[in-house]
Design a protein around this nucleic acid. Structure first.
Lengths: 341, 341
DNA sequence: CTGAAAGCGCTTACAG
DNA sequence: CTGAAAGCGCTTACAG
């Protein structure tokens, strides 16, 4: 392995000087600098991160903790939220980190019934950490805050810690508005779990849209369920079973939407001819759904980019104010909604 | 920050002794060991990885290089192969690494027109590396081999480097067999890009199944296209457009299958009533397809687990023989294939 | 079984 | 602008 000493010898300078050019100090004469650079190139020198870290205390690595449900979840479980969040966020973070020297350590972690913190945090391997997804517990947050490690939550806001999340209220409102403007007047709203704050927020936005368009709340059936395909399927089944015939369903996730679509397919109700379906998230399954699902793009990749900027800044300036960043959402029109005017 | 010196003082031993207990040496008297352990616990000591690495040369981190197409690919691009491979493989690797002290650095990387190696390799940050997906070039492989860094390819075999891949031949054969045994006799086989070895292998297996069931090759239309939803869509369109009416389509990926299904939906051909469709991969989109897609599970998570075992072993025993591991596949029966007997 | 010492490859004041 | 020196927190022979 070639060390700083080798290039110092080759360039006929001291290793201090080599170190200075590596770190882009301008206290080096251009000619010397050039000579050193040539030696580095010639010998294929790569600085030893560990040695550098030992001194500077900066690890040049960020952690990505990817919150999952217990037990082990697989991508084909007819679940939809977390994993697609993971992939796109990763893409955003990864692209943003390309410009820097930071590496990204990843780890799956279940916050429930878990007294340990993620090992990349526990073992002190990162300068800062992204917490992906909403599946954290109070206990987890407290432990995290005690460590005072720079952290940003991605996907959900939480007071007192940096976070980036989509503009949920606006997104649901925009989705409902699109449906309303397309002439729909009788709704099913399939929402996430009732006890979550996000679901409550979504419900409020949905009802606000109804009010703004003078639609009676009686013409909207609102159900809570878990964010899975199965959840959407059963909700749709329940609605249909109780004799309700909406002309549009708005789902709080693409997974829920696709679950509802499956039930409708089975009972031979055509989408969008007989009923419109609208999702929320813009995940891989919305693009591949049949018919392709009209949905709200919550811009997950952009969230990753924002989160990276926030985390890097927090590491550099630990005392800046906490930031809660909200990422804009946008409507993605595909084939599952039809105008009824 | 608490160092080995602090615990040495607290336990009233030398730091060498502390180091020995950390590293589970049995050259420490149980009583001393106990005392040290207590001090470690009390002070919340965590060994400094950088200092350790500086000495031992082992970084305790593995890299996961996730091969992508140029340009930046997003998960909703109606593409399907790589990203779902990424997610499930990651899950397998991550769970396997839980038992160890290794961390996992990830990076997206495009091998085409890229003279640099992935930065986690270039900067020498990992002890070994997983190369995920088949999108590598000869040039990439040569550079990698020159570095002599332990590497395992996941998803595709390549001579001279450790790899784990699904049993492609068996999987396609099994898929075709299932269709044949269900009474189908007129096929469309929508395959990946013609120039890839994998596609050729798939074609051979498919034809072998045909022969074994005495079906004339004339009754099977075989098309090559890229592994995307759009590819599947266009292939199906072409088949239908030329007047061919298969009773089953076998697709070389779930993305292709779902693309084909989309076309069939548009021309109001019912699945599985009018035609059966079978996928390959068992990705998130197969479970969420409508109707749910019968497919071959290539066991991506298991590939991650195997790859981890191989890589860890290669690091420990650099001179063991190259291994090409093949992971078993299995049939996942859902709703897109109907018996026609 | 335990301690003193050297050294891993860097960076950073500090002289000059 | 450049070099000599100390030190980051460990591990590993080596004595004892």
């Amino acid at each position: 392995m070639v060390t700083i000493m080798d290039v110092a010898r080759d360039a006929k300078v001291s290793k201090s000087t080599v170190s200075l050019v590596i770190n882009n100090s301008d206290a080096v004469k251009p000619a010397t600098r050039q000579k050193v650079l040539e030696s580095i190139e010639k010998l294929g020198y790569v600085p030893n991160m560990a040695a550098r870290e030992l001194h500077t205390k900066v690890k040049n690595t960020l952690g990505m903790v990817f919150l999952v449900n217990e037990p082990l979840q697989q991508s084909h479980d007819f679940h939809s939220v977390t994993e697609t969040l993971f992939f796109d966020t990763f893409a955003g973070i990864s692209s943003q980190l390309k410009e820097t020297d930071f590496g990204l350590l990843s780890e799956k972690y279940s916050a429930v019934n878990n007294s340990d913190l993620p090992s990349l945090i526990k073992n002190n391997r990162v300068d800062g950490v992204f917490i992906i997804g909403g599946l954290f517990t109070e206990d987890f947050i407290h432990k995290l805050q005690n460590l005072k490690i720079p952290a940003v939550f991605v996907g959900r806001h939480y007071p007192g810690v940096d976070s980036v999340a989509p503009d949920v209220s606006h997104a649901i409102y925009a989705g409902a508005k699109y449906l309303l403007e397309s002439g729909h007047r009788k709704f099913a709203f399939i929402n996430g779990p009732e006890y979550t704050e996000v679901a409550q927020k979504k419900l409020r936005s949905f009802k606000k849209a109804l009010r703004d368009f003078d639609v009676d709340e009686k013409d909207a059936t609102c159900l809570f369920t878990e964010y899975t395909g199965t959840g959407g399927y059963k909700a749709m089944q329940e609605i249909w079973g109780s004799g309700i015939r909406p002309d549009a369903v708005l789902a709080a996730s693409d997974g829920l939407a696709v679950g509802a679509m499956r039930y409708l397919y089975e009972i031979k109700v055509r989408i969008p001819d007989d009923i419109s379906v609208m999702g929320y998230e813009q995940s891989i399954i919305s693009e591949h759904a049949i018919p392709a699902l009209t949905t709200m793009d919550i811009n997950k990749e952009r969230m990753g980019v924002e989160a990276t900027k926030i985390l890097l800044n927090r590491i550099k300036n630990p005392n800046t104010e906490i930031v809660h960043s909200t990422v804009e959402t946008s409507l993605v029109i595909r084939d599952s909604v039809r105008k009824r005017i």
